[in-house]
Each structure stands twice: as C-alpha cells, then as structure tokens.
Design a binder for these strands. Structure first.
Lengths: 201, 201
DNA sequence: GCGTTTTAATAATGGTCGTTATGAAATGGA
DNA sequence: TCCATTTCATAACGACCATTATTAAAACGC
C-alpha cells in the first residue's frame, strides 16, 4: 500500500478527520437524510475529493460503519471476555447506554439511526411519531400505577420503569422483525422479558 | 360536514381504500422512502387527487398514522383493561408479535419503519446493517453457549434466545435514546432486563 | 526543468423529488 | 339550460439529489 504516495500531488485533508466528520453526519441524520452536501461541508472537503477518497455515498457509509465498530463498539469484545454471561450482558448494556447518550448532537446508535433518522424536513414526522409513542407510554404508566395501587405490582416498583422496559422490548422486537427475525424468536424474547416480571401480590 | 358534496363533481375513488394503500406503502418503505409516485400508484389515484383529499405527504402520513392506531393497535386499549399488569404486558407483547409478522410484504411496525425503512436504493445499506447486527448476534450466541458449558447459564436455556433478548433491549434503548429518553430511564430499563437474568450456577 | 501522476476546484449532468397550474369533465341547484 | 363548484388528468415547475467531466495546481522521479 501507499505506493501511490510516491508520486503526484499530496492529499491536503486528513482522511481520518473526514471520516469522523462523515460519521457525525450519518449518526445524526441517518443514511438517506445525510446529503452529499452535508457530508462535504462537515468534512471541509469538496465533492470530488470525497468521492476519490472513499467512493460513493454507500461506500463512504460502509467505511464509516467499520470505523464506528472499531472506535465506539470496542466495548463489545471486552464484554465478551468477561467471566459470566450476566457480566457480559451488563457490560454491554451499560456501555450502550453511555454511547447512546454521550454526544448530545447525535444520540442513539449509528446503526439504528442510519436507517431510523432522516433529513431535516422529515423532523415534523419524527416528532409526531415520538409524540404518539409518548402517549402510549403515558397510558402504560397510568395503568401500572393502578397496578401498584391494586397490589398487582410491588409498591417499590416504578411504573415509569416498567413502561419504559416494555416499550424497549416492543421497539427492539419491531427492529428485529424488520431484520427478518422469526415469530418464534420474537416469542422467546417476549417470554424472556416476562420472566423478569414480578409476581402479583 | 359533507355540505360540499351537494355540488360539484363526485369523488371517483374510495378514500378509505386509498388510505389503506398509502399505509401499506409507508409501512414497507418508511416515510422518506415512500415517494409520492409510489403512493399514487398504490392508491390508483392521480397526484392532485391525493393532494386535494389528504394534503401533502406529511399530512397524508399523519392521517395514515391515525388509521394505523385505530385499526391495528386496537389491542392496546383491550390489554390495558386486563386485570393484572403482567397480563397487560403479555397481551401487548403477543399482539405486537402478531402484528409485526402478519403481513409478509410489510413486516415490523409502521411507527418504527416510518423512520427506519427507506427507499429501494438504500437497501444495500440496510442489508449491510442487518448483517452487521447478525454478526454481533452470532458472537453473543457463541458466548452464551460457552456460558452454558461453564454452568454460568442453565442447560435448559437457549443461547439464541438470550442473545435475541439482549439485542431487543439494545435496539429498544437505541430507539428510546433517539426519542429523547434520559440516561436514568435507560439505566432502569437495563436493570429491569437484567432482573430477568438467571443466576449463575 | 520536464513529464508523469495524483489531487483540487469549478461547474455541469441527468434524474427524481414534492408540489401545483391548467383546463377539461362532471355534478347539482337555479 | 346555464352557472357555480368540485374532481379529474396532463403536464409542468423549481429544487435538490448523487455523481462526474473538465481544467488547473501541486508533487514526485528523472
């Protein structure tokens, strides 16, 4: 490699910095929502320079994805080396939480956002969907408060937590269904979630 | 209402059918991935007819969303009326699974897909992301198989199920982070998930 | 310094997007 | 029958999209 650096004009921009800039844009706006104008502006590089360095938009996103796994999902191999499965799960979960909330300008996960986020003019629709889910969540919270009052859930339990947990499972299953998971697998996920449920009384 | 039906030419297409057709398209392709050409073709209606009946693309999606809640999420109020919180959760979970897998041409949830799915030419990227998650899932399955061999997970447990469950939580938390959930709420969700984890030995 | 090779910058390409004039056809009231 | 009103169909609009010719500039080996 690098044999081509011996001749010709040198590249004037930092490839790694440009890749990080592109990652920020994709992380925030998603794949389709990120226009090439956004990417070149964030990288401070003209269009043909990005093309010659990384290929087209799809190739650039895939390079960004590799970098994301190497630089931000490096806690996963660490977790996999832990002694117990519970520690594995805990390590992954807590590190994912940190990653999802560390950068205010691009929350969540690049992989999910990559196809969940969208361009700016789609924001009203995103907000409408978020609001719709929030209404559902509020109904669940109210219902679980009633359950506490009826002794159906322990007094120490948080209705808000149970609602958020249930919604997380629902969102996760929806993403998995989109990814082609079988009904039986989803059923097993749901049963596993229910096994965490406190017994009545 | 309907005062305007007394005069002028009558509408020649069924508004409800057009709304259902638009719902199918949005469900499969997401909001941004669904072009107005897709919508008019699916509805069998010319462009200005859709505009005059429902407004622009955003207004049409919101009308579709209302219809989705009324026609496909009607199991939620039913669930909320069940006697125990566990039954509420179980009813919602199982009905969501059915909804997510009932229609092969538009799997998952309209709400999630609305901002998760995309247009056809973004499919290579979707597949790349799905493959990346599948690799992570495979690593988790392998790790949990080892845990079973080490007595860290019960022999009766399914490593595949635990991996799918953990991924569902991760996906759900990513969606929630994107929706603005606080770090503390996500932490509570993770702890709730871990409370379902079987104890070692 | 010359020639070769690579990058940089400007600008243009074809295509698709969401949205909308425009005018013809149809309907009911007067 | 004629008018007011609404829908229908064709076609066009400007904007933005991802992608690339094209030309100028820079850096090396010789």
């Amino acid at each position: 490699m690098d044999w081509h650096e011996l001749m010709g004009r040198h590249r004037e921009f930092d490839v790694e910095k440009a890749l990080d800039a592109a990652m920020c844009v994709f992380w925030r706006k998603g794949y389709e929502g990120a226009s090439y104008a956004d990417l070149t502006q964030a990288a401070g590089v003209e269009r043909p320079a990005l093309y010659s360095a990384f290929g087209n938009k799809e190739a650039l996103f895939k390079k960004v994805l590799v970098r994301y796994y190497e630089h931000h999902l490096d806690y996963i191999p660490v977790a996999l080396a832990l002694p117990t499965a519970r520690e594995v799960a805990a390590h992954i979960l807590y590190n994912a939480i940190d990653l999802n909330t560390r950068y205010p300008e691009h929350t969540g996960c690049l992989g999910i956002n990559g196809v969940l986020a969208g361009s700016d003019e789609a924001e009203p629709v995103r907000l409408a969907l978020i609001e719709a889910r929030a209404e559902g969540e509020a109904m669940l919270v109210e219902r679980f408060e009633r359950a506490k009052a009826e002794g159906d859930l322990p007094q120490a339990a948080s209705a808000q937590t149970f609602a958020a947990f249930l919604l997380a499972i629902l969102h996760g299953m929806a993403v998995q269904a989109k990814a082609g998971f079988s009904r039986e697998t989803l059923r097993a996920v749901a049963d596993q979630a229910l096994s965490a449920w406190p017994a009545p009384k």
